[in-house]
Design a protein around this nucleic acid. Sequence first.
DNA 1: TGGCATGTTGGCGA
DNA 2: CTCGCCAACATGCC
Length: 258
Amino acid sequence: MPELPDLEAFAANLSHQLKGKKLQQLHVSKNVTTNASESEFKKAVEGQVLSKVYREGKELRMVFKNNNTMGIHFMLRGKFFWFGDKNAHKYTLAEWVFGADKNLTLTDYQANARITLNPAPVQVPDALSKEINEKFLQGILQSKASIKNLLLDQHKIRGIGNAYADEILWDAGISPFSAGNKIPAAAVKTLHKSIKKVLGNAVTKINTAAPGIIGGELRDFLLIHNAARKESPAGAIIKKKMAGGRPTYFTDEQEMYK
DNA sequence: TGGCATGTTGGCGA
DNA sequence: CTCGCCAACATGCC
């Protein structure tokens, strides 16, 4: 449910609050989609000090001093709470006990969130990584698939979700229905700038509006992928089209390349 | 109130 | 083989 900018903020805040603390107990529900048993998780990380929490694509990573790592993917509905939050007891998938007021709960009423012990390295670059440049984007766009679907494809570039794909493509002035392999070089250059700008601005806005946030999502500042808005800043009507079961928001300000 | 929303996977058909 | 589309997951939110 949260997208890249939300997860980026969660990771920084969790790292800030939990780094250096010892994981006293870990509970992993049998309902979790995972690659290891609860006892394997316990053996790997209980009693270990947390080194850091960071984001990779749409996953959070908890790295412990012994280098064992837990990957947490929220899928659609996963959510972190601190123990004591009133919602934290329903649909619990996992609990991390770091100490008195530093206990973390993962909930998901669909039980689709995934926890991975020592996730395998992934070659696909993250949307905010330095590897993303015009040449790289040009490479992944060599397909007649729509540019939006290409940006959403986690096997090509990691971290962009449905809402921010719309936001980025609007910012770049490119129709989401354009064919990837018809995008001219100048538009690819703009796309590169828009990816960094839109995602970067969102991280800043979330951190400013909700210091310490570790769950939920903030979206009210989105300009186009936002049901509350009818027009773009320049006054163009925002259109909505369902595609692949998800809404795509766009305006006529975006050029169609076909 | 009930329509809307977020990611991924796998199967289907064009 | 490549794409787009659909269902499934099952509830919170306004």
